[in-house]
């Protein structure tokens, strides 16, 4: 019963935070510096790990599908398989998981620490709403950077698959053939589908992590607990939302 209460309280406070933050959207031009700083933190600092993981995920996809296709025949469809899987599913989900680990946890830790050390109370006594200064620029930056990260993840994953498809002896397809099937059977909607998913995941992750951070109570020990809660909640939400968004976009 207590856990259910806490979950319902969390949902309620997250919705309230969302409404408050959206109401401060017109202040974005005034907070352009904060927006750019968050774009740097969310986008630029996450980019290397997104690129590395996408490359290997694309490679493994090509390798596994090539291995399975040995007995089936049409290996040129490996390009389509890697292309579709990266664009519609693994690209956005992987970026969202990395965003949770790299950015969401840092947001929860920073805001929880500010709450525990009364910096949030100080903001409130100065009549500076935390939703305006701390949440809205992060949400806006996430919405701006998620499509960029996802497109990079898709491209790097596709190229990773192409390299493995060419140089693995039991696959050995030329990149031209690999990308030809991708071009022939994929369209922009497949990529757009993944970008919409990425936007939804990113927005929810950052909102939830901000809310958990801002509602931290107690001492320094609670900062660690808040980070754990934020990461676990975000990962669960990614997978649950993945199903519903996928279904909605079909």
């Amino acid at each position: 019963m207590r856990t259910l209460n806490r979950v319902l309280e969390g949902i309620g406070s997250t919705i309230l935070l969302l409404l408050r933050s959206v109401a401060y959207l017109p202040t974005l031009p005034r907070q352009f510096g904060r927006f750019v700083e968050q774009c740097y933190l969310i986008g630029y600092t996450t980019l290397p790990i997104v690129a590395i993981l996408s490359f290997f995920i694309g490679s493994v996809l090509a390798l596994q599908s090539g291995y399975a296709a040995q007995n089936l025949g049409p290996k040129q469809f490996i390009g389509l398989l890697v292309g579709l899987t990266m664009a519609r599913e693994l690209g956005p989900v992987m970026v969202a998981v990395l965003l949770t680990g790299r950015v969401g946890s840092a947001i929860a830790a920073e805001l929880a620490s500010m709450k525990v050390y009364q910096e949030i109370d100080a903001l409130e006594t100065m009549n500076i709403p935390p939703a305006r200064m701390l949440v809205m620029p992060r949400l806006a930056a996430t919405l701006f950077m998620m499509p960029v990260l996802t497109i990079i993840a898709d491209l790097v994953g596709w190229f990773g698959g192409a390299i493995i498809a060419k140089y693995t002896s039991f696959i050995a397809i030329e990149p031209a053939s690999y990308f030809a099937t991708m071009r022939q059977y994929m369209d922009f909607d497949d990529v757009l589908n993944g970008l919409i998913k990425a936007e939804v995941f990113g927005f929810v992750i950052v909102l939830v992590c901000c809310n958990i951070g801002l509602n931290t109570r107690g001492g320094p020990r609670e900062i660690g607990a808040a980070v754990t809660r934020a990461v676990v909640a975000s990962l669960i939400l990614i997978l649950v939302l993945d199903y519903f968004v996928t279904k909605a976009l079909m």
């Binding site: 620490s113 500010m114 050390y117 009364q118 910096e119 109370d121 100080a122 006594t125």
Partner: peptide, 18 residues
């Protein structure tokens, strides 16, 4: 009151923005 009266609280630990 928030809009019209300027109140300031000096916190015990300072609550400076680190």
């Amino acid at each position: 009151i928030r809009e019209t009266v300027r109140m300031a609280l000096v916190f015990q630990a300072g609550a400076l923005f680190n």
